[in-house]
Simulated assay, not measured.
Amino acid sequence: MTVVQRAVGVGIAAVVFQGVMLIAFAWPASNVEPRDLPVAVAGPQADAVAALLSQRAPGAFEVTVVADAERARGLIADREVYGAIVTGAVGGGGGSGDKAQVLVASAAGPAVAQQLTRVAGQLSGVPEAAVEDVVASDPDDPNGGGFAAMVLPLVVSSLAAGYLLALAVPSIGARMVGLAIYAFGAGLSSAVVVRGWLSLAPGSYLALAAVIGLISMSVSATIVAAGTVAGRIGLGVAGFTFLLLGNPLSGASTGSEMLPQPWGSVGQLLPPGAGASLLRSVMFFDGAAAGVPFTVLLVWVTTALTMLTLLALAGAMHHLARNSSQVPELVAAE
């Protein structure tokens, strides 16, 4: 292949990559709308409002009818629903118990809170309702933009760490040491930035550091394992998966149920999506609904480290067998 042919190939590949990038990031963002979004409806007109939701927006909401506002608040705090519509009394007597409410959790996703508020206001038979933010975003990040923006840097820096270890460190054992140091340091330092300097994260510093470290390890260890097994092809496939699928499908700014399906669900099986969900649970919901995303990240980490360990053991056994086979030759030569 001549230099000119190589340049043409690189140019075409870059054009294709740019197109894929545009589709990967712009398509999910331009198709944000509720899809089986878990919400609750409470109050004396709950059944009627639930039926109305199903009629006006088929497939948009997964409605749970509960007895009262307190039960709805409990479901929101446990991350079983994103919000609730609390209906007023039929006829409305003017008392505080007659008024309708919209309960939201901006910490679970500001886009979802806005969507639910808008839908509640459009429902006929529901009086103009007061909005209560049951689990609010951090006061220094009321729109959730800072939270959404911090997921991509965590993933990109972890990709870079994985690539550097895979390409610059020849020993598998040394790569694993580098991964441990990176994950530990990334968790502690990033938590200082996010919680201390930027004030984006309430809650425990150590819990936040542990989650960030787990996210960092899941991405970087998978990159190193992919590169160790399949070389540059493995590095490319893993990086493509995390950057061009994982990030736009993470639901960090919208919630996975607001993305086109099944892609929203697929995103929750990748480290960026699972990491964003785990961060929300730990930062704002006292760990509620943290089990699934934690398990997803743990599977990625365990799989990658197991692969690296087995490859290291296989390499050590091969080296030992080769050395032992050379011993008789040396003895015979003497």
Score class of each variant (00 low, 15 high):
L52H: 14
A226W: 04
T241F: 10
A207K: 14
Q5C: 09
A226H: 04
W197N: 11
G125W: 03
S171Q: 13
S158G: 02
S171D: 10
R118P: 10
G83F: 00
S204Y: 07
I85A: 01
I215V: 11
R6C: 14
L245W: 08
L198A: 09
G234R: 06
F147V: 08
A7C: 06
A225D: 00
L164I: 13
V292S: 15
D133A: 03
V8K: 15
I181A: 10
G315W: 03
G315M: 03
A180E: 05
Q55H: 15
L297N: 08
G196M: 05
G97P: 10
A111T: 11
G92W: 13
P248Y: 06
R35F: 09
F17M: 13
R195H: 11
F147H: 09
P271A: 06
N323K: 12
A226F: 06
G264M: 01
K99S: 11
Q122P: 06
V192M: 15
G187V: 07
T117H: 08
R195C: 04
G275R: 01
W197P: 01
N143W: 13
G121Q: 01
R195Y: 04
A67E: 12
A191T: 06
P293A: 05
V119F: 02
A290F: 07
M176G: 04
V112Y: 07
V156C: 08
L165T: 05
E128F: 05
R195W: 12
Q18K: 09
G146W: 05
V282H: 08
V16E: 02
R73W: 08
A290C: 07
L179D: 01
W300I: 02
G121H: 01
L297R: 05
A46Q: 00
S277W: 10
V296A: 05
L279Y: 12
G93W: 09
F61R: 00
Q115E: 13
A289T: 04
V104R: 04
S54N: 10
L270Q: 01
Q55F: 15
F294N: 13
G59F: 10
F294M: 10
S256K: 13
I23P: 07
I76R: 02
L154M: 10
L164Y: 03
A84R: 00
L313Q: 11
F184Y: 14
R280D: 08
V327Q: 12
A120F: 00
F184V: 05
G185H: 09
S171M: 13
V16N: 07
A113W: 01
G234S: 09
L297E: 08
L154D: 08
Y163E: 14
A316I: 15
M307H: 12
V177Q: 09
A174V: 15
Q122N: 13
L159N: 02
G88H: 04
G255N: 02
W263K: 01
G83M: 02
T306E: 06
G83E: 04
E128C: 07
V112H: 05
S277A: 15
V32H: 09
V3G: 00
L297H: 10
S277Q: 15
A290T: 08
L270R: 00
V229R: 15
L167C: 10
V301A: 08
